[in-house]
């Protein structure tokens, strides 16, 4: 962990990783889109709408992945004053918000033809919606201070508070949902997922993941450069 703490060393590694991540993402997107849109069969129950899954499920996975890594980074920033951790959290937040928005949007577009409604107050939908609000809250909080260090610190505390709360929220809405309405039909296609659908799903998941790594490296570079700009400006002002 601490080997990557030095921004210069991190940049060296990140720049080596970047083309590979970008390339892998492009390849996986091409293969996943081909398999998902052309080569996989329509589902016997859901017809062609099942193809929405190849966007929806990876986006949902990434929304959770991004938040958990941000929370870990926030802990690292608060406890060990890890210089890169909060740059990472700040860089990843818009991506996480984007994935979450995508997950909600495609879920809505999937639900409209299959359930006959754009939205139900189902436990999963509700907890993902709350997760989206947490992302927005974090981004708004970090940007709300004239002193970026103060914003980062407040954001880190919020991320940890949210990390405690996300399981509680998830648990509470699941409970709330079963009290008020019967369990909704949340399942993937049939009883088990066929290999012809699993492959495009996994490829798209890999594509999303490598896309995330490529873009987050770009954003971390921008964040580090912004810090440098700030210290230079401070140096000039004095």
């Amino acid at each position: 962990m601490h080997r990557f703490a030095n921004p210069a060393r991190f940049l060296k590694i990140a720049n080596a990783v970047l083309p590979w991540a970008a390339g892998l993402s492009a390849v996986c997107f091409a293969a996943g889109l081909y398999l998902g849109l052309f080569a996989s069969p329509p589902d016997y129950q859901q017809g062609d709408t099942v193809r929405i899954m190849y966007i929806h499920v990876p986006a949902a996975w990434m929304s959770m992945f991004t938040y958990s890594t941000m929370a870990v980074a926030a802990a690292a920033a608060l406890v060990w004053k890890h210089p890169l951790a909060e740059v990472y959290a700040k860089a990843a937040a818009p991506l996480g918000a984007g994935f979450t928005a995508l997950c909600l949007l495609t879920g809505s577009l999937w639900g409209a033809p299959m359930w006959g409604t754009w939205w139900v107050w189902d436990a999963r939908l509700t907890s993902v919606l709350v997760l989206f609000f947490l992302y927005l809250g974090y981004m708004a909080l970090v940007d709300a201070f004239d002193d970026p260090a103060r914003g980062n610190k407040a954001g880190n505390i919020l991320l940890l508070v949210g990390a405690v709360n996300v399981p509680i929220i998830k648990f509470s809405v699941e409970w709330w949902n079963t009290l008020h309405q019967p369990a909704s039909v949340f399942r993937l296609g049939g009883p088990t997922i066929a290999a012809s659908m699993l492959w495009p799903l996994l490829l798209m998941a890999a594509a999303f993941q490598s896309y995330f790594f490529a873009v987050v490296i770009l954003r971390i570079r921008a964040g580090l450069a912004a810090r440098r700009v700030q210290t230079l400006r401070l140096g000039q002002a004095n």
Binding site: L37, P42, G47, D48, T49, R51, I52, I55, H56, A59, P94, L95, G98, F99, A101, L102, L105, T106, L109, W110, A112, P113, Y211, V215, L218
Partner: peptide, 24 residues
């Protein structure tokens, strides 16, 4: 036509393209 679900499937993929390319 995506088996009659063109509007839903293509707008999903379109939204994904907009979000991912936009963030990039």
């Amino acid at each position: 036509s995506m088996g009659g679900y063109a509007a839903y499937v293509w707008s999903s993929y379109g939204a994904a393209a907009v979000v991912l390319v936009g963030l990039l």
